[in-house]
Amino acid sequence: MSTLQEQFEAAVAESKSLPERPDNMTLLKMYGLYKQGSNGDVQGERPGMTDFVARAKYDAWAALKGKPQAEAQQEYIDIFNELKG
């Protein structure tokens, strides 16, 4: 059995080739979980109001502040497996 880190890295790599593109809310959730699972709590300043995409990504990551990296990795894997079918 592979480690959680290996499963997470495999899910991240495979997520780029999903048969169907997930909706934007799911993509944002996965982005936040990916950042939390790989980097820990949010870093840097929140992007300005004119950069909608970067601001949404930052907010998705910031919403997970305090969540353990292993828990974020597992949630990412679970969402990926659900999307993969």
Rank of each mutant, 00 (worst) to 15 (best):
M1E: 10
M1L: 12
M1Y: 08
S2R: 09
Q5E: 15
Q5D: 14
E6A: 08
E6P: 07
E6D: 14
Q7L: 09
Q7M: 08
F8N: 03
E9N: 12
A10I: 11
A10H: 10
A13E: 14
A13K: 11
E14R: 14
E14Q: 15
S15G: 10
S15E: 05
K16D: 12
K16R: 15
S17V: 14
P19K: 13
E20V: 15
R21E: 15
N24E: 11
N24G: 12
T26M: 13
L27P: 01
L27R: 09
L28Y: 00
L28F: 04
K29L: 13
K29R: 15
G32E: 02
G32Y: 00
G32F: 01
G32K: 02
L33M: 08
Y34S: 04
Q36L: 03
G37T: 00
S38Q: 07
S38V: 04
N39H: 13
N39T: 13
G40F: 07
G40C: 07
G40H: 06
D41A: 05
D41Y: 03
V42M: 07
Q43I: 15
Q43G: 04
G44Y: 05
E45W: 00
R46V: 10
P47F: 00
G48R: 02
G48A: 04
M49F: 14
M49Y: 05
M49E: 09
D51F: 06
D51H: 03
F52C: 08
F52T: 13
V53S: 10
A54N: 10
R55H: 08
A56K: 02
A56N: 03
K57I: 03
K57Q: 10
K57P: 00
K57L: 04
Y58A: 03
Y58D: 01
W61S: 03
A62W: 04
A62R: 07
A63D: 08
A63T: 00
K65L: 09
K65A: 14
K65N: 11
K65M: 12
G66L: 13
P68G: 07
P68S: 09
Q69Y: 05
E71Y: 00
A72N: 06
Q73A: 05
Q73C: 05
Q74W: 00
Q74R: 12
Q74E: 08
E75Y: 02
E75T: 05
I77P: 00
I77D: 02
I77G: 01
D78N: 12
I79T: 07
I79H: 03
I79M: 01
F80N: 04
E82H: 12
E82T: 14
L83W: 09
L83D: 05
L83P: 02
K84V: 12
G85S: 15
